[in-house]
């Protein structure tokens, strides 16, 4: 048991990954149930953590329950490894586990994320853990929890479909941006956390395991590897993703990534950079290597 205890700088000793083993086992049981019923929200007893609910505690509890000493961890917030939230969550996890961390999504065995799926397709053996604020896709049409639960149970999804219909009548297109409702494994409809529409297709038949944790709402759900995930769409009004055509990343030059819009503080000029900073760094590195190779030839 000693090797499960990570010593911290102070006098306190936390259990490995902070949460006690009994609670971890309980959460792992819920995760297994979630994997067995793709897209189904499984209630769990959300723990108190040294981080306020609403700041990724759902994802954090999943990560803490599945992480082992040999895992390689990546933590991102809106695709970025360096944002304050990502850094503080990463620090907490490193402090209580001592695991190796990386910015390279290919190296990571566990990636905890808020709002993005990495650009490079994930592989078997990798786990993507999502921090979810609002797990209920039917909430926009039904405020009562007892009702939404019944609706999932009976596959009564027509009210959600009607909201798409109404959007098209009013705005000629579905107005949902992030967390676009998806049908998982041709059964449950799921809120894929607030990832952009751009990332939805990455979920479909993904090789990796996807685990979703909502701390405040106490729900865990999953998309196991090789599972069908389809955005809700009318057959004659196909689902469309964010359009970045004609734009490119100012840092790495990429033309085929999800871009963040940035305003230059001095000039006020608008420009774009990759939202996935880890991938952007890799692409920049590759550009430089190519540049060096060219020099070598010359």
């Amino acid at each position: 048991m000693n090797n499960l205890l990570a010593k911290t700088k102070g006098t306190f000793q936390y259990n490995f990954a902070f949460i006690d083993e009994g609670s971890k086992r309980e959460i792992r049981r819920k995760i297994l149930k979630a994997i067995a019923i793709p897209g189904h929200q499984v209630p769990f007893a959300s723990r108190e953590l040294p981080i306020a609910r609403g700041w990724g505690t759902g994802g954090l509890q999943i990560t803490m329950s599945i992480i082992g000493p040999d895992d390689v961890l990546k933590v991102i917030d809106q695709g970025c490894d360096g944002s304050v939230n990502a850094v503080s969550l990463r620090n907490l996890l490193v402090k209580t586990t001592g695991v190796r961390t990386t910015f390279d999504s290919r190296e990571a065995t566990i990636i905890q994320t808020r709002h993005r799926i990495p650009e490079i397709p994930l592989k078997e053996g990798q786990i993507l853990v999502y921090q979810v604020p609002l797990p209920e896709p039917l909430r926009r049409v039904e405020p009562r929890e007892t009702e939404t639960r019944r609706m999932h149970g009976e596959s009564e999804y027509s009210p959600l479909w009607v909201s798409l219909y109404e959007d098209i009548v009013k705005w000629q297109a579905v107005s949902i941006g992030a967390s676009y409702p998806c049908r998982v494994n041709e059964h449950y409809i799921m809120a894929p956390s607030p990832i952009p529409k751009y990332d939805i297709n990455k979920l479909n038949m993904a090789e990796n395991l996807n685990l979703f944790g909502a701390g405040r709402e106490k729900r865990i759900y999953a998309v196991p590897p090789y599972t069908k995930v389809e955005p809700l769409q009318f057959s004659d009004k196909p689902f469309t993703i964010e359009d970045f055509s004609g734009l490119s990343c100012r840092r790495c030059g990429a033309r085929n990534t999800f871009l963040d819009e940035i305003y230059d503080e001095e000039t006020g000029e608008k420009y774009y950079v990759c939202s996935d900073t880890g991938n952007c760094d890799l692409l920049r590195q590759k550009n430089q290597e190519e540049l060096r190779d060219e020099h070598d030839c010359a």
């Binding site: 009564e156 027509s158 009210p159 479909w161 009607v162 219909y165 009318f234 004659d236």
Partner: peptide
């Protein structure tokens, strides 16, 4: 539309 959608008609037009 809700009644039609409930009967699995998913063609907007």
């Amino acid at each position: 539309a809700e009644k039609l959608l409930a009967a699995d008609l998913y063609i907007y037009e």
